[in-house]
């Protein structure tokens, strides 16, 4: 059976669960990994309410801080991302109210980002943002095109189709260890080409 296209499968949730457990036991550094994992998705969500780039960053940051403060009350009744998503949505709405702007009347769908009424909340993307997005998309596309077919297939089945390693091994008729290796090599290859563009270099901190 294919795992859900949404990455919040039970095993992924277990990693989140382990990170949350660590934060709840006083390990602040574990929260850093959750921020790194979810910041783009939360940023995208917030940007559907707010179009200004600096405001999006502020609200995204605020959402994560609120989540950190609320973590003692997180009991795991839902997936961590679902819980975080609600916090981010409320933070964005409250921000709009505080700024004297009217928040949308309907909530944003958790998977597509569209509202219940079926329209995008913010559609006036800046030309710079559009260009940057286009460059990233093109880089990924080109890198996938240039990649050996077995690597491209393995990564595509994993990321696009949401297949498990077991299922990919069955489809590709190879051992699961080979699938693991192929997906890693594909990611490594893409990362080398994409990293200069998205520039995720971090300022080293001592944990």
């Amino acid at each position: 059976m294919a795992k859900a296209a949404d990455p919040h499968t039970s095993s992924v949730t277990n990693i989140d669960g382990e990170l949350v457990r660590r934060v709840q036991q006083g390990d602040k550094a574990a929260f850093d990994l959750l921020v790194r994992k979810y910041q783009q998705r939360i940023g995208k969500l917030v940007s559907r309410f707010i179009s200004d780039r600096s405001e999006v960053e502020d609200v995204t940051q605020e959402a994560f801080i609120k989540a950190y403060r609320a973590l003692p009350n997180f009991r795991g009744d839902s997936a961590f991302y679902t819980w975080l998503y609600r916090i981010a949505t409320n933070t964005a709405k409250n921000y709009l109210v505080a700024a004297g702007r009217r928040p949308p009347r309907s909530d944003v769908d958790i998977t597509s980002g569209a509202t219940e009424q079926g329209f995008e909340l913010v559609s006036d993307n800046s030309p710079e943002g559009e260009m940057a997005s286009e460059e990233i998309r093109r880089t990924i596309h080109d890198a996938l095109e240039q990649m050996p077919e077995e690597l491209r297939m393995a990564l595509s089945m994993c990321e696009f189709d949401g297949l498990t390693y077991d299922e990919i091994a069955e489809v590709m008729d190879c051992p699961i260890g080979t699938v693991r290796s192929r997906i890693f090599r594909a990611r490594q290859s893409l990362d080398q080409k994409l990293r200069p563009i998205i520039s995720t270099t971090e300022i080293e901190e001592v944990v």
């Binding site: 990455p7 994992k37 910041q39 783009q40 995208k44 800046s126």
Partner: peptide, 30 residues
């Protein structure tokens, strides 16, 4: 950094990051 980068890569491939007017990086600030 790899953890962050691979996640972002997946977000882009699945379309979870595109269409966004901004690419945020709030790791240091948070």
């Amino acid at each position: 950094t790899t953890w962050q980068s691979y996640h972002e890569l997946g977000d882009w491939m699945r379309g979870a990051a595109d269409e966004s007017p901004v690419r945020v990086n709030v790791v240091d600030r948070v």
